[in-house]
Each structure stands twice: as C-alpha cells, then as structure tokens.
C-alpha cells in the first residue's frame, strides 16, 4: 500500500465523523434551530457507544447506544430551546458543557479498556483492486452509512414535501404556523435527528477510528462540524466536499509534522475555521438579498395565544 493510498484512506476515516455530525446539524439548522451542543452530543455518543460495544461485544449495539445517547441529550436541548423557548445559543453551549461532564463521569471506568474495531467490508476481487479497491470497497459500515445518509438528506430536502416543510419552518416559523404546520414538532424532530447523527459520529470515533475511549477524544470535531454546515452554506452536496476538505486538512497536518515541514500545527488546526470565515465572506459578496442561511436560524418561536 503506497503512501498516497494510505493518506486517502485516512482522510476518509477522518472525514466520516465530521460528515455524520454535520448532516444532523444541517437538518436541525434547516429547521431554524442552532444547536451548539454537537461537541457534547458527540462525546456522550462516543462514550456510550464504547460502553455498549464493550459490554456486548457488538459494534452494531455500540452504534445504537451512541445514537440513543445523542438523541437523549438532544431531547434535553429540545425541551429547553423549543419547549421552553430558551435562547438557543445558551442552551447549546450548556449542552456541550453537560455532555463533556457526563461523558467523563460515565467513561471514567472505561479508560484503558479495549474492544475489537468495526469490521471493514471485504469483497473478493473488488477490494483487492489496486488503489481504488480499498478506497471504494474496503471501508467500514459507518462510511457507507454516512454517504447514504447524505444522499437521503439531499433528496428529502430538495424533492419531498417533508423537506419543503422543514425549510419553510426554518425560513419563517410564523408563516408556517399560520398555514397550520406544527412548528415545535417539526423543530423537535429535526433536533432529535441531529442528536442521533452526532451520537453516531461520536460512536464512530470509539468503535472504528480508535477502538478505545479517552476523555475529551472528540477534540473539537463537534465545533468543526458546526463550522462545516456554514462552510457548506447549508447545502448537502457541498457538505460532502467540505467534510473531505476538512478531513484532509487534519490528516495533512499530521503528515506535515512527520515530514518536518515548518508549518505550526496550531495554524493547520485553525484552517477549517479560517476557511469557514472566507466562505461566509464570499457568499455574502456573491449573493445580494434573500438569505443563504435559514432566515429564522437561532430564533425561538412561540405561537400567539
């Protein structure tokens, strides 16, 4: 296996958790809810996923535990930010702090334990193909799931009535309410979906990326996922490209260090955020009027009574 192929493989592995977490956040934000608790939900997903797999020996059950944990934490956020109409930024930040603390508590006895890493696909003939074999046919289930999820999200958003209602709620909840849509229900479901995705993204880290648990192991990936949604200007297609780019930056940073290049690693780590700022500037230059972001993003909605 050449170095180039190894780099490509590790970029895919690094991109997958970003893509999973960002797709969930994309759905929540398209419904107008800014959930800054992605990092917290990923951490809790990572530790619960690991605990599930460690106890049962099954990657699938581990992944399920991660999703359930993410959904549970997102439900707490939905209760606060949608049910009680608390400021979304404050509730999201609190969620990240809570998630970090809870994960540390649950994970304390698990530090140092090992599990078997998620199996990779192996198709006789295809997987053995040079260069593209392992890239296309030798990934673990999470990678295929993440791509399938993205395709599904793109289709639902662009082509289905469900997607239309979701976008409408994120654009103008008052009008959506006036037309008879249940804004709170749509938003809650979107947030729960986002929580499930973040939990799964966290579980990927402990089940496939590294088959062990360490405190704080998401290392800011939740924040990168948030930046990624903005970077992609809320479009699923661009999200895939952005995830690959951000994943590549984090991998190249490691290789750059190995080769002794004189680029400070801190600068490399900051690249995703710098890229997001550049993209924000660009979209505001190119498009006038209207809104690329969901117009009601981050605003609470309480129907008139």
């Amino acid at each position: 296996m050449g170095l180039f192929e190894a780099i490509l493989l590790s970029i895919i592995t690094a991109s997958t958790p970003l893509l999973l977490a960002a797709s969930g956040e994309l759905i929540a934000e398209r419904a107008g809810v800014l959930n800054l608790g992605v990092e917290g939900m990923m951490l809790i997903g990572a530790v619960c996923g690991f605990a599930g797999a460690w106890a049962t020996g099954s990657t699938a059950i581990g992944a399920l535990c991660g999703i359930v944990a993410g959904v549970a934490l997102a439900a707490l956020f939905a209760l606060a930010a949608i049910g009680l109409a608390i400021n979304q930024v404050a509730a999201g930040l609190a969620l990240t702090i809570l998630g970090t603390g809870l994960a540390g508590l649950i994970g304390a006895p698990l530090v140092g334990e090992n599990i078997a890493a998620a199996p990779h696909l192996w198709l006789p003939g295809l997987t053995d193909l040079p260069l593209i074999g392992k890239l296309l046919f030798g990934q673990d289930a999470f990678v295929y799931l993440a791509i399938g999820l993205m395709v599904g999200i793109a289709y639902v958003l662009a082509r289905t009535r469900t997607g239309l209602i979701l976008r409408a709620v994120g654009d103008d909840p008052a009008s959506a309410h006036a037309l008879g849509y249940n804004v709170a229900a749509v938003r809650t479901l979107a947030v729960l979906f986002g929580g499930g995705c973040a939990g799964l993204a966290g579980a990927y880290l402990t089940l496939a990326y590294t088959p062990f648990y360490a405190p704080g192991m998401t290392a800011g990936r939740g924040w990168i996922a948030l930046a990624l949604v903005v970077f992609a200007s809320w479009r699923p297609g661009r999200l895939v490209a952005g995830a690959a780019l951000f994943g590549a930056v984090s991998i190249l940073q490691l290789h750059a260090q190995a080769f002794g290049l004189g680029v400070p690693s801190q600068l490399m780590s900051a690249l995703p955020y710098l890229a997001t700022v550049v993209v924000l500037v660009l979209i505001s230059r190119i498009r006038r009027g209207g809104s690329v972001a969901p117009a009601a993003l981050g605003t609470t909605f309480v129907p008139e009574r």
Binding site: L164, I165, A168, D172, S175, A176
Partner: peptide, 13 residues
C-alpha cells in the same frame, strides 16, 4: 409567505 422559497413551493405549502 416564505422569502427563500419559490412561488410554487409557497403555494404547495
């Protein structure tokens, strides 16, 4: 009406 949606999408909603 929803500013970011098209005329047809607004009617569909």
């Amino acid at each position: 009406l929803f500013d970011n949606l098209t005329v047809a999408e607004n009617v569909a909603l």
